[in-house]
Amino acid sequence: MNYNWFSILFRFVLLFSLQVLVFKRVNFEYGLLSYAHIYVYPLWIMLLPFKIPKPVLLIAGFVMGMSVDFFYDSHGVHASALVFSAYIRDFILRIVEPDIGYDLDQPFNIRRLGILWYISYTTLFLLLHLFFYFSVEVFSFVYFYEIMLRTITSLLFSSFIVFIFVLIINPKS
């Protein structure tokens, strides 16, 4: 179980910096798009190795979430969403499992698993993450319509960025 710790740490710093320094400032001011926000930091949890112990995964989600929260002044909201996403990552992986199956000892190999797999995995992951996040942010299901609106619009942009991200940096570990 040799993880490429450097690569994991590098992705943490990169995604975290992009999130709080760049994407935090992005605001769309056009109709429904004003509901959209770009969240790329969940990609860090998505790309952690398959066989990482679940408690470590959960704590990783908590740490990343809290770090983002410090910059968003939304104490605990991102953390709770990312802990939730980390917890359900196994279920998501099982849902989108391709016919050839996962090579559990290897890191994510997107060439092997295919770009379609990658898109469906990240989209499903982001969908659940964003839905949870906006629910906690609003903190009341009275605004279900608004939560869904925010989730869908944010999902469009976030997935797009995540997709581009993987073209630039092909994660090997």
């Binding site: 959960l58 704590i59 908590f62 979430g65 104490h75 605990g76 802990v83 939730f84 917890y87």
Partner: peptide, 14 residues
């Protein structure tokens, strides 16, 4: 259990 614990902490912070 860890998941529940972390969520409780998060919600407490929230």
């Amino acid at each position: 259990l860890l998941f529940i614990l972390l969520e409780v902490i998060c919600f407490y912070i929230i």
